[in-house]
């Protein structure tokens, strides 16, 4: 095997391990770390490419933090690089969660932990409200989107519909609506 690729992949692993260790609060929190480690320190990728990569991986299944690591790894050192970066970014949380999972249920019986978790549950509810609010502001821009969001909400809340089924139907409806829209505007050239 190409030793240069192997060396690069090892480096990718350690860089993304560090990134994985310090990424609190989801995918976008990673961007500054990636900029620092990948663009400035190692000059593996241009800064504009990082933004493009984040735009692309958002529309793919999976977690943004992991997807962007895979993508950057692939760009830098092919399949081996993608594997090294992905493993690197996942491993820190695996280790931390393993420690918590192995000791968690003992810890759950300590005094005050139950009371703390009553508080945490209310806090998580507030956090989730904020997520829904922020996502709605950025992604719900027309009547079609409002109807879809409400239907999905009701399907799950009232009828207990399977989430995957709701997503499949929504994807098909989105495709159908945008195709109809494009056909209607055929005379006007669209980019």
């Amino acid at each position: 095997m190409d030793t240069k690729l192997l060396k690069k992949s090892l480096k990718l692993f350690t860089v993304f391990f560090r990134i994985g260790m310090f990424t609190f609060g989801g995918g976008y929190a990673m961007i500054p770390y990636i900029e620092h480690e990948i663009v400035e320190k190692n000059k593996w990728i241009e800064s504009e490419d990082i933004i493009d990569i984040f735009a692309v991986v958002q529309s793919l299944p999976g977690v943004i933090a992991v997807n962007s690591s895979t993508f950057v790894g692939y760009r830098v050192a092919g399949l081996l690089g993608a594997f090294a970066a992905t493993l690197g970014v996942i491993l820190p949380s695996y280790i931390i969660i393993a420690i918590i999972a192995l000791f968690f249920y003992n810890f759950r019986n300590y005094p005050f932990v139950n009371e703390a978790f009553y508080g945490i549950q209310a806090g998580v509810a507030a956090l989730m409200c904020n997520v829904v609010y922020k996502l709605s502001k950025s992604s719900i821009k027309n009547g079609f989107a409002i109807v879809l969001a409400l239907s999905a909400f009701l399907a799950l809340t009232i009828f207990g519909a399977p989430a995957i089924g709701v997503l499949l139907i929504a994807g098909v409806l989105g495709l159908a609506a945008s195709t109809l829209y494009n056909v209607k505007n055929k005379e006007e050239p669209t980019k």
Partner: peptide
């Protein structure tokens, strides 16, 4: 097109979990 349908639906699903 697919994403234009998925994004709002995902928000509805998250709202339900919330």
């Amino acid at each position: 097109g697919i994403l234009s349908g998925l994004r709002p639906a995902v928000i509805g699903l998250i709202a339900s979990s919330t």
